Amino acid sequence: DGSASHPGSRRWPVERLSVVRPQESAQALHRLGLPLHSLKWLRAGFSDSQVAAGEEDLSRFIERYLKPGDVVFTTWREDGHCDHEAVGRASAKATRAVGATLLELPVWTWHWATPEDSQVPWDRARKILLTPEAVARKRHAIHAFASQLEGDPQIGLPPVLAPYVLERLLQPFEVVFV
């Protein structure tokens, strides 16, 4: 949940973020219109920035809850963030093991890649167009993440989701790698 996103912050210490981020996630899903009462929320308990150390355990954890034909959305295995990459690799291994379908989403990729970047598997990319209503719901959901929209001015920490990040997140499409 990114509980180490505000190092040294007294406003957003790890202990607070460990409680707040799951609440923000639930609120965001609710704002997207997902029926929370019918979701089974599973948390594996891996530490922020340390997921790679438990990647095999994560893969087994994910695999336990999959069956053939499931579709798994995960972060891209080469996203440029250590936890995103570890989750992507663990998800890929788990989906292969059970015969599920894997769709990877680039998140931090947009910060370092250009449209011509050869490191990005553009041949696997698919654009999913979003309706104006879906973009509006997405905007509303993003605003559930106060901890990511606020930095800590007392120690000079900017928000995790700076305005330029929000601009990218709120494009009228999503990109997935198949």
Rank of each mutant, 00 (worst) to 15 (best):
D1I: 09
G2W: 07
H6E: 04
R11V: 05
P13Q: 03
P13E: 03
A26R: 14
R31L: 15
L32V: 08
S38C: 12
K40D: 14
W41T: 09
R43M: 11
R43H: 12
F46V: 04
S47F: 11
S49K: 15
A52N: 09
A52F: 06
G54E: 11
D57C: 07
D57K: 14
S59A: 14
S59Q: 07
S59P: 04
R60K: 14
E63P: 03
E63W: 02
R64P: 08
Y65A: 13
L66G: 06
D70K: 01
D70V: 07
T75Q: 15
E78G: 15
E78W: 12
H81Y: 08
H84V: 00
G88M: 00
A94S: 03
R96S: 13
A97L: 08
A97Q: 10
A97H: 11
T101V: 14
L102I: 07
E104R: 03
P106T: 00
P106V: 00
W108V: 00
T109V: 05
H111S: 10
H111G: 04
A113I: 04
P115Q: 00
P115F: 05
D117M: 02
S118C: 08
V120S: 03
R124M: 11
A125R: 05
A125Y: 02
K127I: 15
A136H: 14
H140M: 15
A146L: 15
S147M: 06
Q148T: 06
Q154K: 15
G156F: 01
V160N: 11
V160P: 06
V160K: 07
L161E: 02
Y164G: 06
V165L: 12
L166N: 09
E167Y: 07
E167R: 14
P172Q: 08
P172A: 04
E174V: 06
V178M: 13
